[in-house]
Amino acid sequence: MANRTTLSAPAGAGQAMLRVVLRVAAIVLGSYAASAALVAAATTLLPFTGVARSDAFTLSAALGFLVYLGLGLWAAAERSLVRLFVVLASLTAGGAAVAALIAGGAI
């Protein structure tokens, strides 16, 4: 039962459908949320290296699309839905925390 989260595993039709829905949500929404949080973090972090704030955001946003793409492709292939959601949630929370702390003046 190593493949418990794959569609090919013996499971009810309802459960299989739920997994597809979760998978699609991870690809479309989860990967976007993680990339958006990382864009916010990079926008607040890059100015510490001497980059202007506007340049920091322009650059981060352009790279954000590539991060979204990479995460989305990985989300389609990663077997474990649990690992998928843990990684995406950590990136989102981590990025948002960094951005909030710096933007809020805590760092």
Binding site: T44, R53, A61
Partner: peptide, 25 residues
């Protein structure tokens, strides 16, 4: 349309003002 697709960036970097980002950029 990066500023539309990633509002998170200018919200964090420009205190929620997209206009402030465009003015500086």
């Amino acid at each position: 349309f990066a500023a539309t697709y990633y509002p998170s960036g200018w919200m964090a970097g420009f205190k929620g003002s997209q206009q402030a980002y465009f003015t500086e950029a």
